[in-house]
């Protein structure tokens, strides 16, 4: 009866111990338990009670096994937790809404009912969200267990240069990466829509003779501008003017093409059936609004920042409740 209690305890420990160490750990653990039981019996205790007491003191067998196996009792430890948490927030608060919004637009273009749109929005949010959480967590758990340190992950140790500048003129490395990523994404969409996504290209293929290569060229200039701004590290009138010129170089041709019905591929427009409404008129309107509105917002935003920096006005540092006042230059 009592031996079976020890057996049950020992077997439970062995289940979670590496196979190569099992027999040695079993022998040692059994003698240690017997030694402790004998000591209690010598002290006048009943043997059955001594066994129970000894095993109770040894405690949770899974915990003991983890001690023997020397494995962490957590999924993601303190070294990786901050990076995991930041990535999780970005993915769930920024990327997931974008994915859901794109899905909703696609479903609306596919002429879905309101119920279907809501259904696929909820479905996408749950599926994409679960994928994001799962794969990111799995990656970090693997990193945790393969003994990669934070320094190796970054390629070098943390230095003072890693501190954000917080001055309004400075792009953070993350903002630079976002700007460049946006440029690459838009260029990829322009090129890929010709070959993928839909059976016929969305944008008018006739413009490959000039306007689409031109737009790709301007987008590359936007990337160069972001790198220049990142290195320059200060807003100024020059920056505001360059930014405005670049914005106009995108917005004016796009608007002109849309107005002249040369933006979308007529063949693709012909495949759309939106009931009573005219798809071309709507899409043209939306395109002009996005092009003009986006450009105006960008121009005004940068001009205001440049003017504030020029006057040395105090600028709030996001997320701190503090203000930074730029030195007059």
């Amino acid at each position: 009866m009592t031996t079976s209690l020890i057996d049950r305890y020992v077997f439970t420990v062995l289940r979670r111990v590496p196979e190569g160490q099992r027999s040695d750990i079993e022998r040692e653990l059994r003698t240690s338990i017997e030694d402790a039981v004998d000591a209690r019996v010598d002290g006048g205790q009943d043997r059955a009670a001594a066994v129970k007491q000894t095993l109770l003191e040894l405690g949770d067998p899974d915990r003991l096994a983890d001690g023997y196996a020397d494995r962490p009792r957590y999924l993601i430890g303190p070294v990786f937790y901050p990076a995991w948490q930041r990535l999780m927030v970005v993915l769930l608060a920024t990327v997931l809404p974008i994915v859901v919004a794109v899905m909703v637009v696609i479903r609306i273009l596919e002429d879905a009912t309101v119920g279907e749109v809501i259904g696929s929005a909820v479905g996408t949010a749950l599926t994409a969200g679960a994928h994001m959480v799962f794969w990111v967590t799995l990656t970090f758990a693997v990193l945790e267990r393969t003994g990669v340190t934070r320094g190796e992950l970054r390629g070098r140790a943390w230095t003072l240069d890693d501190l954000p500048r917080y001055e309004p003129g400075f792009l953070t490395p993350a903002q630079l990466a976002a700007s460049l990523g946006w440029v690459v994404l838009v260029i990829a969409v322009i090129i890929l829509q010709q070959f993928a996504f839909t059976e016929v290209p969305v944008l008018d293929p006739a413009n490959w003779s000039f306007w689409w290569p031109y737009l790709i060229g301007v987008l590359i200039l936007e990337g160069v501008y972001a790198v220049w701004l990142f290195r320059r590290g200060a807003w100024s009138r020059t920056v505001a003017v360059v930014n405005a010129v670049l914005a106009a170089m995108v917005a004016i041709p796009v608007t002109w093409l849309a107005v002249n019905e040369r933006f979308f591929n007529p063949e693709w427009i012909a495949t759309l059936d939106w009931g009573g409404t005219d798809p071309l008129a709507w899409l043209t309107g939306i395109t002009i609004c996005v092009a003009v509105g986006g450009a105006l917002y960008d121009v005004v935003d940068v001009a205001v920042r440049a003017e504030r920096a020029r006057r040395g006005l105090r600028t709030p540092v996001p997320g701190t409740g503090r203000e930074f006042s730029a030195p007059l230059s």
Partner: peptide, 21 residues
């Protein structure tokens, strides 16, 4: 193992078997 556990607790170290082994 057990002898060390005894020695340590007699010497005033509060150590548990499941950490020591």
């Amino acid at each position: 193992g057990y002898s060390l556990l005894e020695t340590l607790s007699a010497a005033g170290f509060e150590v548990e078997a499941n950490t020591l082994y």
